[in-house]
């Protein structure tokens, strides 16, 4: 799974999808995860980084990550390599 290439993410957490014309805002953790996804990191690597940086349990992170990815899918911001 990766973030579509043409998606632009600004430091302020503003996301613009040039395909659909929709815009989105992210919170801090959201920006961080989306940037790591864009950088091509694997899910496990991202989890590792976030757990290291933030005060959060693995299970709580997993739940929030599933929800976050569901939203990215819902907004059609991700694509899957064949």
């Amino acid at each position: 799974m990766q973030i579509k290439k043409n998606i632009a993410v600004s430091d302020s957490g503003f996301v613009f999808d040039p395909t659909s014309g929709e815009s989105y805002t992210l919170n801090t953790v959201g920006v961080e995860i989306i940037n790591l996804l864009k950088a091509g990191l694997h899910e496990d690597e991202i989890k590792h980084k976030i757990l290291e940086e933030y005060e959060v349990s693995a299970s709580a992170y997993d739940k929030s990550f599933i929800d976050f990815v569901a939203m990215l899918k819902n907004y059609e911001l991700v694509e899957y390599a064949d």
Binding site: S10, S12, G13, F14, F16, S23, T25
Partner: peptide
């Protein structure tokens, strides 16, 4: 430009 829209939406 979208930059203006972004600025308003985030700040």
């Amino acid at each position: 430009n979208i930059g203006e829209f972004e600025k308003l939406s985030t700040t």
